[in-house]
Structure formats: C-alpha cells, structure tokens
Design a binder for these strands. Structure first.
Lengths: 110, 110
DNA sequence: ACCAACGGTCAGCTGTGGCTTACAGTAAGC
DNA sequence: GCTTACTGTAAGCCACAGCTGACCGTTGGT
C-alpha cells in the first residue's frame, strides 16, 4: 500500500497540460461530447480527442458511447490517486515543519 | 476564491516531471543540500539545480544558504495550492456523480 | 594568500509532446 | 442503400523541456 505513486504520476502528467486541464475543468459541470468540448477550445477536434485519450489513460475521465456521439465524464479514480499521493506528501511536509519550528520558533523566513 | 488555479498550474506542471517528483519526495525526509540530492539521482548536478529552481518557482520548495551549501526544504505553499484546486475539482466530480446515480441507481459501472 | 568544494548559470544538443491535415470507420436519418 | 454527422487514427512538423559539459562566483579551510 505504499506504491500509490504510480497512478498518481500519470494523473499529474496529464493535468500538467493547460489544454487538458481546461477540458477536465469543463467536465466539472457535467458530461460532454467530444465535439461540444472541442467547440470551447482553440485547438482542433483531433487534438481534443488525443487529450481525452491521455486523460482516460490516466484514469481521470471515462467515456460512454451513445450512437455516434462519445460522451466523456469525470472519473474519480485519477483524482483519488492524486489525493492519496498528496496526503502522503503532506505527512512528510508537516513532519519537516515540526522539526523546523523546534529549531527556529520564530519561523519568519520567506 | 475562484482563481486559485493559477498557482496550482505551476505546481502541477512542476510535479509532472519524474525527476522533479523524485527530488521532491526525497525532501519529505527532511532538508537536503544540492550535492546530496544530486548523488541519489541519475542526472547531473546542473540538472538538479534547474529542477530545484522550477520547484522553487512553483512554491513547492524553499532554499536556505548556509555557507557554500544551499539547503532545500519543502514549502507547503505549492502543496496547498494543489490541494485547493483538487478540492474544487472534487466538488464538481461529486456533483456529477450525484446526477449520475440519480439516473442510474445501480451504479455498477467501472 | 592560495586552494578546494559547492552550487548556479550559459550554450548547445536532442528527444518528445502537442498540433494540424488528411483519412478511415461507424451509426443515424431519409 | 446512400448520404451526413461524429469521432478516432496516422503521418508529419515544430517548438520546448530536459540533459550535459564547461565556466564563474562565493565561501571556508589551511
């Protein structure tokens, strides 16, 4: 249960791209078809397809075929992976700060 | 309270790189000097310096000069930015699922 | 004062990620 | 059955991220 970093890696890499984040954030308001998603972005439709494929591989979105339309929605798996990794990091960071405050109670360096 | 995405973008992009994540994770166990960090990685020392600069710009780490040594430690600012963005995403995802379950009470799709 | 160590910066190369255009496939409507 | 709409895939191009080797400034030791 210590190797949750693997899926988190893909999710982080996927969300590093601005266009991908934009698509992902737009899915917050509900499932959307590819064409509809492509209409709100500056890049072409194929580019959107590729981005969605990356997001899907990272477990961040999930697709459902409906006729010729392909509807994408958020998959919590990827988000959960990031959250788990983040919580793990928080533990280390806090531990680090505990030692820091112990040595330097002022703590004004920034 | 809606534009916390900006700092999160830099933090996500910074943590997308595997080497950078490795360095960051190593800092979990406490502050380390550049040379020490470089010794545990396969890349050269200049590369480590550049990676640390990126992490610092993203608010993920903080440096302290001590003699000729430069000690890096985790800065919670970047982590907090990601967490805020993530929480924002969770809201949308859960809302999405509520509607999903409303339409499909079975909820076995995965 | 000299020397050694540590680390940031520069110049340049290379691999790869993201974009586009063109094409192929499938489902719906008439 | 034919046409139209919607999407994924292939090939290719270009820009940028990441790496290296060399250099420079600074600090500490003797």
């Amino acid at each position: 249960m210590s190797k949750k970093s693997a899926p988190a890696a893909a999710a982080l890499a996927a969300l590093a791209d601005p266009t991908r984040r934009q698509l992902f954030e737009r899915l917050r308001s509900g499932p959307r078809a590819v064409g509809e998603l492509a209409r709100g972005v500056t890049v072409s439709r194929p580019a959107v397809s590729q981005h969605l494929a990356v997001l899907k591989a990272a477990g961040l979105v999930r697709d459902t075929a409906t006729g010729t339309r392909r509807v994408y929605e958020i998959d919590p798996k990827g988000l959960a992976a990031i959250r788990a990794w983040l919580d793990d990091m928080w533990g280390g960071a806090l531990q680090n700060f505990a030692a820091d405050l112990d040595k330097d109670p002022a703590g004004k360096e920034n």
